[in-house]
Design a protein around this nucleic acid. Sequence first.
DNA 1: ACAGTTGACTTGTCTAGAGGAGCTACCGAG
DNA 2: CTCGGTAGCTCCTCTAGACAAGTCAACTGT
Lengths: 258, 258
Amino acid sequence: MQLGAIDRASDRPPYRQIADQLRELIDRGTLVAGDKLPSEAELIEHYGVARMTVRQAVQELRNEGRVVAEHGKGTFVRQPVQVRRLASERFARRHREAGLAAFSVEAQKTGFTPNVDQLEIATGPAAPEIRDRLRLGDDEEVVSRSRRYLADGQPVETAVSYLPASVAAGSRIVEADTGPGGIYARLEDMGFELDHFTEEVSARMPTAEERRRLQLTDGVPVVVLVRTAYDTAGRPLEVCDTLKAAPAYVLEYEVPAR
Amino acid sequence: MQLGAIDRASDRPPYRQIADQLRELIDRGTLVAGDKLPSEAELIEHYGVARMTVRQAVQELRNEGRVVAEHGKGTFVRQPVQVRRLASERFARRHREAGLAAFSVEAQKTGFTPNVDQLEIATGPAAPEIRDRLRLGDDEEVVSRSRRYLADGQPVETAVSYLPASVAAGSRIVEADTGPGGIYARLEDMGFELDHFTEEVSARMPTAEERRRLQLTDGVPVVVLVRTAYDTAGRPLEVCDTLKAAPAYVLEYEVPAR
DNA sequence: ACAGTTGACTTGTCTAGAGGAGCTACCGAG
DNA sequence: CTCGGTAGCTCCTCTAGACAAGTCAACTGT
């Protein structure tokens, strides 16, 4: 393995020099996805530094999301996960008319087994931000559906939908199984004609709870996608807060130039 | 300051318990944006643990992007940066007909002083991925314009545009100043009618170089946005790879439901 | 041949310092 | 009153271990 030396006279601290060299091995392709890094003991012996110095160097690469440490096994160059390209047409009417919710559309295209768990349905007062987005009055309630999506058994996303209770109550939206085509098909069954959605996309590091629910390792951000469904009158019918493991998703949009 | 104790009998390691308690102070609003955390010395004394244990606890919050350590000053709850909501209509024709490039449109709306630096213009062979996106032949060259954008002097984004040399050569696109309305205005000046753009959005942790160029601290991911401009014949005219500091951006899209 | 055990290797966590470097406020001298 | 120096506080970096816990391959006993 082509590890160099560290320069004690350098301004750059040894742990960063070691991190630089390991990063270089990955960037150059000397180490590729799935390869094991030199062990801590090997790095300690090679560079003649303390164990904490070596650990700090490797932690830099962990924080960058480039390597994954596995207790008792070693540290490995991260395997890329299958990237799901989410086309915005996944909410087209033809899909829900065919009885497919968006996640199922995605599963069919990409070829994975979709599953939903940790489902929680509740009715109650809306948080201020949700109330604003749904343009509700102070005392109007919302129905919320919280859930986690799995692809081939692996958590990939969490989502919470909010709809005005006045819209959703009494429909299958408040049941465990919303029925074919999901929430949007039920809304259209009830006579609401969906016109468009807005999607607000951002990214950040996950909270500890989010890391746990999505089974994320170090250095993996999440994509936050807040989608609002509007009817033809421009009225917001549903807000959906979703969280996705960032490495697994590319969101695709088409934007007019006119 | 309401710090608790650590439970040495717990399965949860002390450094994580300390991180949990500091996180709780922030979540509960006991510490708010800009507030200083207890110093390392204070935490060491309070919890009766080693310095490295305390540093590891604080590093958890740094990696989550929640706090920022400043050498010699202290560790502070991160100040939220001004969030720029990027509406997809920033590429509408009316803006470039008014002589405004997208960044200037954004600056006018949000009210900051826009600037561009680190400009590099080159002509040469295309990387395979760019060649594919622009649907170029093996020997066709591209013009590339690499630059960094600053808002009120602060780096917020880097971008590289690629256009077929056969399209861009001889125009102001290869000059330092592309002229009013930017690249897209020049393309339309030359007779190309822009029809739509695709935008592919993802997120990841920045590389070391990207951190440097964007002046990012620990635990701050970047949003990667690859935009492709198409003319009315569906031909790709330009590919623009951009990188944005994630906390500063929310991307907004409108998606039809039909 | 198989199951259980063990040893070696690996990462995880912690201790107890020590010294370096940045920052800031205060004090003393001019 | 101003400026330079200094002391104290702060985070950064490193050392040199020690012990815990997970993994895996090899060995041993049945």
